[in-house]
Amino acid sequence: MKDTTLIDQIGQAHFFLKTPQRIISLVPSQTELLHDLGLEAQLVGITKFCVHPYHLKSVKTKVGGTKKIHFEKIKLLQPDIIICNKEENTKEMVAQLSEICPVWVTDIVTIEDNFQMITDFGQLFNRRVEARKWNDKLAFGLKNFKENVKDLSTKKVAYFIWKNPYMVAGSSTYINELLLLNKFENVFGEAIRYPEITIDQLKEANPEAVFLSSEPYPFKKEDGYELQEDNFKAPIVLVDGEMFSWYGTRLLKAFEYFKMLRSQIQ
C-alpha cells in the first residue's frame, strides 16, 4: 500500500502512507478474522472477549472489553490502526480513540457486508490473496448450505439475547439475516434491532421454537425451565451465539452448525 485512501463501512475515509503494522482489535469476531488472514504478528492489542483462537489471550495485551477500554494502555501500544464495529463499540469510544490513530469501523448486517469486510481487510492490510481465498470458501459454503435447506419448511422462531429484561433479535441485525438463511421466520422480525419483550408478547407471537443464545447473556437450561413455568409451550433450544452473531471467517464453521441445528427442528 502506498498513499492510499480507503473508505470503511460507515463511510469514513482513511488515508494511509503505508500498510498499518500495529493493529488493535476491539471486536472478538474481527480478531479471529485478522488471525485467519495471517495477521497474528501484527495484532498488538485485543479485548478480554477475544477467545478465538484460544492462545491469543495469553500472548496479546488485553485492553478492556468492547464497551469499556483502557485508553492509556491502548495509547502506550502505539497502534497504527484500531478496528471497531458500529454495533459492538460506542460512538464515543471511536471518537476518543481517533485521537490516537485511525479507527476503522465495520458495519455488518448482511452476509454481503461480511464479504465486503473481508475484502476491505485484504486491501487495508495487504492480504488480498488471503481475503479472496476466504471469500471463495465462504461463497462455496453458502451455496452448499442454501442447497441443503431449500426444501425444508419455514419455522417460526424467537431468538433471545438477554434476560432481565428479556430482549430478542429483531430486524436490521446479522442474527436476523442468519435466521432467514436457515429458513427460520423471526416472529419479532418487524421490530427494529433488539427490542425488549414480555412473556405475554412471546405467547402472542406464538413461535414454533424459542432460541436462547449463549451470548451476550449466557442462557442456561434453567432459563428455559423458567419460561416453561410461565406456561410457554413451544420447544426451547439453547443455541451457540457465536455461530449466529460472529461474522468474519466464523461463518464457515456456522454452516456446519446450522445443518445440525436445522436437522433438529423440522
Results as ranks from 00 to 15, higher is better:
Lys2Thr: 08
Thr4Pro: 00
Thr5Leu: 13
Gln9Leu: 11
Gln9Glu: 15
Gly11Ala: 08
Ala13Phe: 12
Phe15Tyr: 15
Lys18Ser: 15
Ile23Pro: 08
Ile24Ser: 02
Ile24Gln: 08
Ile24Leu: 06
Ser25Val: 06
Leu26Asn: 14
Val27Gln: 12
Leu33Lys: 12
Leu33Tyr: 05
His35Pro: 01
Leu39Cys: 06
Glu40Asn: 08
Ala41Met: 05
Pro53Phe: 11
Gly64Phe: 06
Gly65Asp: 08
Thr66Val: 12
Thr66Tyr: 08
His70Gly: 09
Leu76Cys: 06
Leu77Phe: 04
Gln78Pro: 00
Pro79Tyr: 11
Ile81Asp: 04
Asn85Gln: 09
Glu87Trp: 11
Glu87Cys: 09
Glu92Lys: 09
Leu97Val: 11
Trp104His: 03
Asp107Tyr: 10
Ile118Val: 04
Asp120Met: 13
Leu124His: 10
Leu124Arg: 11
Ala131Arg: 04
Asp136Val: 02
Asn144His: 13
Phe145Asn: 02
Ser153Trp: 01
Lys156Ile: 02
Phe160Gln: 06
Ile161Ala: 06
Trp162Lys: 01
Asn164Lys: 11
Gly170Thr: 07
Asn176Arg: 07
Leu178Phe: 14
Leu180Arg: 07
Leu180Tyr: 02
Leu180Glu: 09
Asn182Pro: 01
Lys183Met: 06
Phe184Cys: 03
Ala191Met: 12
Arg193Tyr: 15
Tyr194Ser: 12
Pro195Thr: 03
Glu196Val: 07
Glu196Ser: 11
Asp200Met: 10
Asp200Trp: 02
Gln201His: 01
Leu202Phe: 06
Ala205Gln: 14
Ala209Trp: 12
Val210Cys: 05
Val210Ile: 15
Ser214Pro: 03
Glu215Trp: 10
Glu222Val: 01
Glu222Cys: 00
Asp223Arg: 01
Leu227Ser: 09
Asp230Trp: 15
Asn231Ser: 13
Lys233Tyr: 10
Asp240Met: 01
Gly241Thr: 02
Met243Tyr: 13
Phe244Glu: 06
Phe244Ala: 05
Trp246Asp: 08
Tyr247Ser: 12
Arg250Ser: 10
Lys253Leu: 11
Tyr257Phe: 11
Tyr257Ser: 07
Leu261Thr: 03
Arg262Ile: 06
Gln264Ser: 12
Ile265Asn: 09
Gln266Pro: 14
